[in-house]
Amino acid sequence: MKPASLAALGVSAVLLLSVGLSLANNPRPVEAAGASEVRTWRTAARHSAGLAPDPARLADTAIVQVYAAATFGWRGYFAVHPWIIFKRAGETAYTRYDVIGWGRGTVVRRNYALPDGLWFGATPSVLVDHRGEGVEAMIDDIEAAIDRYPHAEEYRSYPGPNSNTFLAHIGREVPALRLDLPANAIGKDYRPVTRPLGVSSSGSGLQFSLLGLLGLSVGVQEGIELNLLGLNFGVDFNRPALRLPAIGRLGASDAVNAGERADDVH
């Protein structure tokens, strides 16, 4: 068998494995037993997941968190929607930012939903949790990055720019965030064709990408990751894991927890 055929067979096998694991893991919300109403985006749960620290109890602590949850409907088996929340010391409420593809005007929305609310029924995971020392300066940089987001008036679910493109932009602009978006954050690798080379979405490496459809990223946080038509395959050496489409990650967690200092890069 020719090398090209072997490579195609290998990619197909890994893709089938990734999709199978995602289906088995079922990141989408499950209907409650006996529920008679079919869930739609209008009726899906949006309540708090109970993940955000109590901002009133921690009023004197600056906090930044990044969340990601399965997208609504069948797409939830293949992709996630991320957002960022933060509060400064002295504040008793969070500010949330994410990109929303529907509605009028800018796609960058402030406080669109609860800070840690379910994303149309899907429970989010915490990707980043920074608290205390150094976080005030990080929030300054995050707000500046949000203001500089170059795609605030455009949105395409595939290959981007979309909600993952937005968080990847913040990650590039604020490397202290140590944001490593998972492999199923479709759109994180979107780059205009006029700027195919630059910093990777974690802010810790380099990336070559053509419109998020073909590219390669190499960095401290993401390891080595290949992008083929928006499907990402790679290996994370920082916290050993395979980076796979659909399921995102298979191996050790890469979440940055509150106990880790922002400058404690492995």
Rank of each mutant, 00 (worst) to 15 (best):
A69M: 01
T92D: 12
I84C: 09
G90A: 08
G50L: 01
E136P: 12
V66I: 10
H81T: 03
A62G: 12
R96V: 06
R96I: 06
H81L: 06
G117E: 05
V126A: 00
A89Y: 11
R96S: 14
W102A: 11
L118F: 14
I63L: 05
A69E: 09
A79D: 15
F86S: 09
Y97A: 04
D116T: 07
V126C: 03
A59P: 01
R131S: 13
F78E: 10
A79K: 04
Y67D: 04
S48D: 10
R131T: 07
Y94V: 06
S48R: 07
R75K: 12
A44C: 07
A93K: 14
T92G: 05
G132S: 06
G73K: 13
A44W: 10
A79C: 10
A59I: 14
G101F: 11
R57C: 04
G132H: 04
L118I: 01
P82W: 02
D129L: 09
A113H: 12
F120S: 12
A56D: 13
A49P: 08
A137R: 14
Y112N: 15
V128T: 08
E136M: 07
W74D: 12
V99C: 08
W74M: 10
F72S: 13
I63N: 03
A68W: 00
V128G: 05
R46H: 11
V107D: 00
D116M: 06
Y94A: 12
A122V: 06
R104C: 00
V126E: 00
R57L: 15
P124K: 13
A52L: 05
D129H: 15
V80W: 02
I84T: 11
P115F: 11
Y94S: 06
A93D: 14
V128E: 00
I84R: 01
E133D: 15
R88E: 02
G132Y: 10
D98C: 00
A45V: 12
A62H: 06
G50D: 13
A69P: 01
H47S: 13
P53I: 05
A89E: 15
G50T: 01
V107A: 02
G121I: 08
V66H: 02
L51Y: 13
V64H: 00
T123H: 07
A79Y: 07
F86T: 00
F120N: 11
W74F: 15
R75D: 15
S48C: 09
A69I: 14
W119A: 13
A89N: 07
D98T: 05
V135G: 00
V64Q: 00
P55W: 04
A68F: 03
S48W: 11
D60T: 14
D60H: 12
V66N: 03
H130N: 11
G103K: 02
Y97V: 01
T92W: 03
E133Q: 12
A52Y: 10
V126W: 03
G134L: 07
A62F: 01
K87F: 11
R46D: 04
F86L: 02
D98G: 04
G121Q: 10
D116S: 09
D98I: 07
R46K: 15
G90C: 05
A113P: 00
R104F: 06
H47C: 03
Y67E: 05
Q65P: 05
V135L: 09
Y77I: 00
T95K: 00
L51C: 07
A70R: 04
P55E: 15
V107L: 02
A56C: 03
D60P: 05
V107W: 01
T71L: 09
A49M: 13
P124C: 09
I85P: 00
P55L: 14
W83T: 03
A45K: 11
P55D: 13
